[in-house]
Design a protein around this nucleic acid. Sequence first.
DNA 1: CGCATTTGACCAGCGC
DNA 2: GCGCTGGTCAAATGCG
Length: 179
Amino acid sequence: MEINYPNLFPSSSSSTSSGSSLSLNIANSQSLSEFQENNANNKQSGDGFLGLTTPRSSDQTDHHHDHQQASSAHHNKKKGEKKIRKPRCAFQTRSQVDILDDGYRWRKYGQKAVKNNIFPRSYYRCTHQGCSVKKQVQRLSKDEGVVVTTYEGMHSHPIEKSTDNFEHILTQMQIYTSF
DNA sequence: CGCATTTGACCAGCGC
DNA sequence: GCGCTGGTCAAATGCG
């Protein structure tokens, strides 16, 4: 519950310079990647960020919407299968704006208020067909100048716009998250 | 008119 | 077993 990001983003505080080019200062941003077996010893309860579980296999190809709201639809999980946890990559960015234009086109599909944080968390999904890459954007309550963007999945299609250096970063992300 | 955003509800996992 | 929290869906709404 107590989200302080103990080990994740250590030196987030003591940053007073919110001058910041809004685009992206990679120098200040920290990247990290995790893999599915990573948090086996994760006794951290709240861990609202990188310990989150990925419920369904996110294959919206068939996407039989049994309307979850109806009743006992759930997703039929394989009896022997463990839950698959897709790799994620989180970036901490110092920016005034929440929406970091990384060259892809995103559609917002949800927003939730997180505990111990006055700012909501926004959920985005890539609008490209067949691309199920998701990202979530959150702003630290401690530092409103810090925006944490978590990417989940890899893009398998070219970037629409040319956002110079961010494309390079995306490439590195794919290296990190390669499984 | 088409698409993106908003927003409330639902559901699953986990902790107590 | 209950309640909390995070994640997602989908209808309604807004905007270009």
